[in-house]
């Protein structure tokens, strides 16, 4: 029963925050920032355990799986464009993944985080299940990694469009790669708002970022720990 109520409540808060975002169009009012804030304060206010909430929330999180499978459709539709720009895509993604891992490490050193947190931060820019797997592989804490992935998603979703505007990026492919690389699925959903071509590029970026990180992270980790 509590599970059902939590699902209903989450959907309701989501729909309301989406309406609010549509009206005000202010980036910091993204439903992915507002809805969790409202829901967490409700949980605290009504003394509901997170595990009780998650008995329902889990069902919604599970829907991410078919959603990721669904990214096959934009990829299929724009396969010709993707093929044409294959080299550019691979080069940009290799640069993105390398920078994602190295910069997470360097900035963690600068703010003096210990190695446990540093290692958990390294795979933060890819989709959750793979990020958690990489985290285990390099000796991080997978649950902390999951948190960092979601914060990265929120951050990228809000800042991505600002960066695109600030850098005057006009190419649809570049916009999509930037969003999918920087903010995995959350960025990809933003890219789909830009257009279906941007969405396809972001879907591809999300998938490639995950695969490249699986390969690059174990190689780059010893360098960062030096």
């Amino acid at each position: 029963m509590i599970a059902f109520i939590c699902i209903l409540l989450t959907v309701l808060v989501y729909l309301l925050s989406k309406q609010l975002y549509k009206k005000i169009k202010f980036a910091f009012l993204s439903p992915l920032l507002i809805a969790p804030c409202i829901l967490s304060s409700m949980l605290v206010g009504f003394h509901i355990n997170y595990s009780d909430y998650d008995s329902g929330g889990r069902w919604l999180s599970n829907m991410l799986q078919p959603a990721v499978v669904g990214f096959a459709i934009p990829l299929y539709k724009f396969r010709k464009v993707m093929k044409k720009y294959a080299k550019i895509i691979v080069v940009s993604m290799s640069a993105g993944v390398t920078i994602a891992i190295l910069s997470s490490g360097v900035f963690s050193h600068i703010v003096k985080l210990n190695d446990n947190y540093l290692l958990s931060l390294l795979p933060r820019s890819i989709t959750t299940p793979i990020a958690m797997a990489v985290s285990v592989d390099i000796g991080g804490m997978p649950t902390m990694t999951a948190i960092f992935v979601i914060v990265t998603g929120i951050t990228g979703l809000i800042l991505g469009p600002m960066i695109i505007r600030y850098l005057h990026i006009k190419e649809k492919l570049a916009k999509g790669l930037l969003l999918g690389m920087g903010a995995h699925g959350a960025g990809t959903s933003k890219a789909l708002e830009f257009g279906s071509e941007e969405g396809a590029a972001a879907s591809l970026a999300m998938v490639l970022a995950a695969i490249f990180t699986l390969v690059f992270a174990p190689i780059l980790t010893p360098l960062i720990l030096l």
Binding site: V11, S30, L32, L43, M144, S189
Partner: peptide, 23 residues
């Protein structure tokens, strides 16, 4: 179906974002 899931994808991220209160 894919179009629906992708356009409402943010909803599916919300429970994991709420999980932050555990930490």
């Amino acid at each position: 179906g894919a179009g629906f899931l992708m356009s409402e994808m943010l909803l599916f991220f919300i429970p994991s974002a709420v999980a932050i209160i555990q930490y």
